[in-house]
Design a protein around this nucleic acid. Structure first.
Lengths: 367, 367
DNA sequence: CTGAAAGCGCTAACAT
DNA sequence: ATGTTAGCGCTTTCAG
């Protein structure tokens, strides 16, 4: 039952990790040279360099991060605070962010704030105490004090997941760089698609839009698209929690209840989980999707294509955001002045959950 | 369009965060006393203590983590490496872990390893360089070198998500403490429930079981339960990726194809995502669940109860694991010698996706 | 109860 | 090209 334990490389009782001094001593050079070699900074003789490298490897040397940070006043650490790890897209994006960071020699400090800007601010301060070289935040809506604090400490910030403040009605503090996609444009495209299908009454199911400029921008975009075409504003239902299918179900029920002929013929959900709930509720209400009601989502999570009907949704470039954010940030920290990449693209993925409204064949609006 | 920017607390040009020395100077005491007060270590006069505290608050003092780490040889940081952030249960558990850690003054360093033990080892070493005070790992299956490294460095390890090695056939290295639940028992309970319903041929859909003792233990439990009742071993299908509904779909198809009368009457999936895929495939194959086929999952993610039919599954105590792991770890690090909590409980949640097999009324096996 | 002094391991001028 | 000299900001004996 019990496999014999493999031989373990047990350390001597009073063992302690090798230091740069140990290497210097063993190589007959000074600690400074060791530092120079290990950091590729300053000129060093090819022979000594090689000797140092060899000994470092033999001694299994790994620099002490704390000492490095203290002496160089750079921690090679970056902090990220995201609203929630339960949003799979954030999890995916942040994982890429961390991986790229690590390839470039940086370490991620991660925290979540439950969509609460005050908690976010507290996390930011904790990260500052840990000496992070930069901070990555989601979206453009943050406490002025938090941003002010960062600015005072000269800690660079990178905003992600949004891009320009267009469509967002939040106070923008100064102008932090932002890498993401245009939430307003993406939602607008989806709304226009629905209108072109012939829909005239749209419903919106959004998670909470408090402290969430992405969601707010999307909702605004729908309203704007409708207004542009001279149509009535959308019925909007927000849910207390954003990633529960039960919330999506309840929201659709609320949206359709007692509306009779005025009920929306299409419902845009601001994420796929809510859309899934809406699909379930529609089915329970005896509504055929897409014949009686069109439903769209946002995110294009793995299951979206497998739902029945398959979900029309907006695919978000989570991985691309993580990659781009990390490389831009590292480039910046290392003194290169990388241009901010253009907004990444979100793509409308049309599937079976949407189509023309009942008794109204698709007829693209002229112009 | 552009909201007027609120006044920002901008720092003076050459500003730098307050140090313990600054406080000492302002309070007319020594840095040592400041340290003693801020760490509640050693006796200090009530008056001086108060003065120091007041000044520290005024100066908005936050200790420099790197300096603290270097001087005290403790980083108040713990590392965790998990297989994947895409498993929502890990995300939930780790979030609790991080929160409890933070309440107790510790910071989390998080990494993921894609179910690859070599990557895990690399991450562990990187964390050691960062001076983590302890490491938290998922499951009991790890590289011997990784565990040996940790042991040599005297870095405590806490295993989670598993509990005893019972049912796991992996080599256990020494004996690391483990906080989690009994995967074998949980799967066994689900299997026995199915057998009691009258099923005689079970199928299993598992994500990869390589480097995954939890999944392996579950699969073993099913086989053991069947053997115990003198029944044929289960048909087992493993999938290359573990959290894709498409994999679950494909797996069920493979499981049922061309089996005719020998096809399993119940399929146990080792996570809810795979179960969801299996449900979809069953529907496409014209199989009525639970009438023609019973399907069970593992995890009880949010959507499980909303599926139709609602999914019978095993609820995993992810949050409890995160909480318990963090408090136990901190207690240990602070010198208390907390007893390891007993295994947490996973609960079989019976819903509509399971029932008796076709033409065989439920008939609990005698004894 | 409190201060002085000595580093923790590394980097960064400044010499040579 | 390499060594020397100072610390980075904090904790920690050790005296008093």
């Amino acid at each position: 039952m019990k496999a014999s334990a493999p031989a373990l490389p047990v350390a001597a009782p009073g063992w302690r990790p090798a230091t740069a001094q140990d290497i210097a001593r063993a190589a007959g050079v000074s600690a400074a040279s060791v530092s120079r070699v290990l950091n590729n900074t300053g000129r060093v003789g090819a022979l000594t360099r090689e000797r140092i490298l060899k000994i470092a490897a033999e001694l299994n040397y790994a620099p002490n991060a704390a000492a490095r940070t203290l002496a160089s006043r750079r921690s090679r650490t970056v902090g990220a605070v995201i609203p929630s790890l339960e949003n799979l897209n954030f999890a995916i994006g942040i994982d890429r962010f961390r991986k790229v960071l690590r390839e470039r020699g940086y370490t991620l400090l991660l925290a979540s704030c439950d969509y609460d800007n005050d908690k976010e601010e507290a996390q930011i301060k904790a990260m500052a105490a840990h000496g992070v070289d930069a901070v990555m935040l989601i979206g453009a809506s943050h406490n002025a004090q938090a941003l002010g604090f960062l600015q005072a400490r000269r800690i660079p910030v990178l905003l992600t997941w949004s891009c320009s403040p267009e469509g967002a009605n939040f106070p923008m503090i100064g102008s932090a760089p932002c890498i993401g996609f245009d939430n307003f444009a993406a939602a607008r495209q989806a709304a226009l698609y629905l209108l072109d299908q012939g829909h005239r009454r749209l419903g919106v199911i959004a998670g909470t839009t408090v402290n969430n400029d992405r969601s707010a921008a999307r909702v605004n975009a729908v309203a704007a698209a409708l207004a542009e075409r001279g149509l009535a504003p959308p019925r909007i239902v927000t849910t207390p929690a954003s990633y529960l299918v039960s919330e999506g179900k309840a929201a659709l029920q609320r949206l359709m209840q007692g509306k009779g002929r005025d009920a929306p013929t299409a419902v845009m959900c601001m994420n796929d989980i809510l859309a899934y709930g809406a699909l379930l509720a529609a089915s329970e209400l005896g509504l055929d999707v897409p014949h009686d009601l069109s439903v769209t989502g946002f995110d294009d999570l793995d299951f979206a294509a497998s739902l029945s009907p398959a979900l029309t949704t907006v695919r978000i470039p989570a991985e691309a955001i993580g990659d781009a954010a990390a490389s831009w940030l590292v480039d910046s920290l290392e003194g290169r002045q990388p241009p901010l990449p253009p907004p990444l693209s979100a793509e409308l993925v049309i599937r079976a959950s949407s189509g023309p409204p009942p008794r109204a064949p698709a007829q693209p609006t002229p112009r």
